[in-house]
């Protein structure tokens, strides 16, 4: 079996003795063109790109990502545009592995099989579905695997030990650990030390799995968590886009600056 681009990205980071940097941006935020430009521009600092397909009733997202999602939907972003963005991004020479992230209703409406075929066709490497937890996702995760798409399982501080083991057992090559009880973009309400403690106890169960930490990570906090396999920054970036729009500045430049700073902090 060939090693997935996601696994390769983690391997490369391990060699460089640093965590992988994952970013989350919303497709179509603030326009279709700009969101592609952002991806292309940050790609040089980022190890894996997460791209959100926006939904208008998100039950797991905080203010910043909601704002970004509503902005994209208001600007008319459609699934076909999102796949086009991915396709264009992946066709570039130095593109990075890409994970689509969103809510199940969008996939359900598109049709599970059709969605996965399209993912494969345009070069999507992984999928995160916020509201499709284990074990309800078992069938869909298997379908993903068949299309060489990594289905990323989520773990949270509320997940029991027993459940964690079972989820890890069914997981693919990347797992997402939610740092705290929060929607995306909340302020870190527990210490990075405590987060890493939880993280290490999960990591011990199966060292071969790449586990990333997300939720509440910013320029200020990223350095303190760099022992993880990977770190996801989402809301801080979406917020940067909001700020740029309010200040009539170019979001591409501003987001690229912040991402290069994030990279410096963990290198």
């Amino acid at each position: 079996m060939t090693v997935s681009p996601i696994s390769l990205a983690f391997k490369k980071c391990k060699k460089e003795k640093r965590p992988a940097l994952l970013t989350y941006t919303v497709a179509g935020d603030n326009t279709k063109k700009k969101s592609l430009e952002i991806l292309n521009s940050i790609s040089k600092y980022v190890d894996i790109c997460e791209l959100g397909f926006p939904h208008n009733t998100p039950i797991g997202d905080g203010g910043q990502i909601q704002t970004a999602s509503y902005r994209a939907i208001k600007n008319g972003i459609k699934m076909k545009d999102i796949f086009q963005i991915v396709n264009k991004f992946k066709n570039r020479k130095n593109s990075k592995p890409l994970i689509l992230m969103g809510y199940y209703n969008m996939i359900c409406r598109y049709g599970e099989n059709k969605f996965l075929n399209k993912c494969k066709q345009v070069g999507v490497n992984g999928l995160i579905v916020v509201d499709l937890p284990w074990p309800d996702n078992k069938k869909f995760a298997k379908k993903c695997k068949k299309k060489s798409v990594t289905f990323v399982q989520l773990l949270s501080p509320t997940t029991s030990k027993k459940r964690i083991k079972k989820i890890i057992n069914d997981s693919h090559d990347m797992i997402y650990y939610i740092s705290m009880l929060s929607t995306t973009g909340g302020k870190l309400k527990i210490s990075p030390k405590k987060i890493l403690e939880n993280y290490n106890s999960i990591k011990k169960i199966n060292k071969s799995k790449n586990i990333v930490i997300g939720f509440g990570i910013t320029i200020k906090t990223i350095n303190s968590l760099k022992k993880a396999d990977g770190l996801v920054v989402g809301s801080a970036i979406c917020n940067e886009i909001s700020k740029s729009i309010n200040n009539r500045q170019n979001p591409v430049t501003n987001v690229t600056n912040i991402v290069s700073l994030l990279k410096k902090r963990i290198s």
Binding site: I59, G60, Y104, V130, D131, L132, P133, W134, D136, L154, L155, S156, P157, T158, T159, S160, R163, I178, L181
Partner: peptide, 20 residues
């Protein structure tokens, strides 16, 4: 056992809410 009445219902929730 998955919480569905026929095709309807279920638990489409973020992982954090599984336990509560």
């Amino acid at each position: 056992k998955n919480g569905f009445w026929g095709k309807f219902g279920g638990n489409f929730i973020p992982e954090t809410l599984k336990k509560p």
